[in-house]
């Protein structure tokens, strides 16, 4: 079963001409990439476009993907760059139709816990919207994609030594915003 193979083994098969195996990588990473793209772009349609473009770019770049490369972090960097392309287009054509301030969050199994959490989650999402795209990217990479500081530094092109302080600053801003303050505090 191709589904049980490692990313590297699948890439080798694709490079030997078995294109259809790329679908396994798409199934494996599309949702993680989407969460990152949605967190940065704050719009579902743009996030889907970014993920779609990222997979095409990754496919074209597969021959250059080194054997020691972690496909997940390599692909998340491509996704992040596709998000930056969309942000640049928005700036150029001023085509952004507004943030998705309210997003439908999935319910927890426990209704009581769900009631308590829902308000906090919506507050956090709105606070996250108020960070800049790099800070949002760092928070999502760390706390959703569980990336290391080194992977965050590589993805966002940040100097390695600044990741801890920048991430901490983003967390401080989130906390202030959730407590009703502003990002300047």
């Amino acid at each position: 079963m191709v589904e049980n193979l490692s990313d590297l083994e699948i890439i080798e098969l694709i490079l030997k001409g078995q294109k259809s195996n790329f679908a396994v990588l798409v199934s494996r990473y599309q949702q993680a990439a989407y969460k990152l793209a949605l967190g940065i772009l704050l719009q579902k349609a743009d996030a889907e476009d970014a993920v779609s473009d990222a997979f095409i770019k990754a496919y074209m770049a597969l021959p250059g993907c080194r054997k020691d490369t972690n496909f997940n972090s390599w692909f998340l960097k491509i996704t992040y760059n596709c998000c930056l392309d969309i942000l640049r287009k928005r700036k150029k054509f001023q085509s952004f139709n507004g943030l998705e301030d309210t997003i439908e969050l999935a319910s927890d199994e426990d209704p009581l816990q769900d009631l308590v959490d829902r308000e906090h989650k919506e507050g956090l999402w709105q606070a996250l919207n108020k960070l800049n795209h790099e800070e949002r990217g760092a928070v999502i990479l760390k706390y959703y994609n569980e990336a290391s500081y080194l992977e965050i530094a590589r993805t966002l092109n940040w100097p390695m030594g600044t990741v801890a302080s920048r991430l901490s600053r983003a967390r401080d801003k989130l906390r202030n915003l959730m407590e009703g303050g502003s990002t300047d505090e």
């Binding site: 095409i56 999935a106 959490d117 956090l124 996250l128 959703y144």
Partner: peptide
């Protein structure tokens, strides 16, 4: 809270078919 909020975001529709057509 951050992790559970990000996990609660609705999943994207499956793009596999669309992407593979482009591939």
């Amino acid at each position: 809270l951050i992790k559970s909020t990000l996990e609660s975001l609705p999943p994207m529709q499956d793009l596999n078919e669309k992407i593979m057509a482009r591939v």
